[in-house]
């Protein structure tokens, strides 16, 4: 009880001290133009700081909503990009018909494995949303994998971090391409094989998807070359650092190839 009274007394003294100091500053401010200007500018500084922090905090609280909005906008933009690409390949400009090669679906990763040799990923979307086996999955920082099993509400991918998975990648600067596989030892390392020996590829060059597979769109950034190595004097291996952090995967795009059936028919020789 005694200590409680002591705390209250100390608190009252502190309040009195603050009150008297504030009163002094109010008096100074009211009696001197220069001091008033300085006090007001100091108060404005504090005010601005508090406002700034408050805005920052509000922004922090709205990140989730903002992320959702940006994510949706990304899908729309990707779709528009595909439309433009398809438009560029049409000869008859008078009757433009948008027939993009790819359409995109949003999905979130609910489980991702990175510590095995055959890693897989589970998405929160399935057949109900139109996801089918064989569809590619990408982000704006890389190729994630390919859908290999679908249930009504979920889809399973073979991750790119799978030693049996191979995608077609190319060097953005020179256009040379080759199969890219996961190195198998680190989640952010990959190797592109069969690059011609004469190619002028150097560490720091950007690697993108080639677009030859009809599963993934072209020119999705994948990573950068950090080392090159000659193989038997006939080709080069490029060692790549991936842009995407597979350990922190969250939002992805499932890519639906609109012409894959037609392409497959051509490959199989069944085209009409």
């Amino acid at each position: 009880m005694k200590s409680r009274n002591g705390i209250i007394a100390n608190l009252a003294t502190l309040l009195l001290f603050i009150g008297l100091e504030v009163l002094s500053f109010v008096l100074i401010s009211n009696n001197s133009v220069i001091q008033r200007y300085r006090i007001m500018s100091s108060i404005r500084d504090v005010q601005s700081y508090v406002w700034n922090k408050r805005v920052g905090f509000k922004q922090f609280l709205s990140y989730k909503t903002e992320n959702e909005r940006l994510w949706e906008e990304n899908v729309t933009l990707r779709q528009q990009l595909e439309n433009i690409r398809s438009y560029q390949f049409q000869n008859d400009y008078d009757s433009i018909e948008f027939n993009p090669d790819f359409t995109y679906l949003q999905a979130r990763v609910i489980k991702s494995f990175t510590n095995r040799q055959h890693n897989c990923i589970i998405l929160n979307k399935g057949q109900k949303e139109g996801i089918k086996e064989g569809m590619g999955v990408v982000t704006d920082r890389g190729i994630i994998g390919i859908v290999n099993a679908v249930s009504e509400n979920y889809a399973q991918l073979i991750s790119f971090l799978n030693i049996e998975q191979s995608i077609s990648a190319k060097v953005l600067k020179s256009g040379e391409f080759g199969p890219m596989v996961w190195s198998g030892d680190a989640a952010d390392r990959a190797i592109i094989r069969e690059i011609p020996i004469h190619s002028d590829v150097a560490p720091g060059d950007t690697i993108v998807s080639s677009g030859f597979s009809s599963i993934y769109p072209a020119e999705i950034p994948i990573g950068t070359v950090y080392r090159t190595e000659e193989v038997n004097g006939v080709s080069k291996n490029l060692f790549v650092t991936l842009f995407e952090n597979f350990k922190a995967l969250d939002r992805v795009y499932v890519v639906r190839s609109n012409h894959i059936d037609e392409i497959n028919e051509l490959i199989d020789g069944n085209a009409k």
Binding site: L20, F25, S29
Partner: peptide
């Protein structure tokens, strides 16, 4: 708390009697 009030009064009176900026000595005294 008594000392705070005394200091404030001394500073304020000094500012008043010496035609200084009111509050200057009281802020320092408190």
């Amino acid at each position: 708390w008594i000392l705070l009030l005394e200091a404030f009064a001394i500073g304020l009176l000094l500012d008043m009697f010496s035609n200084g900026v009111l509050g200057l000595n009281s802020a320092a005294a408190v």
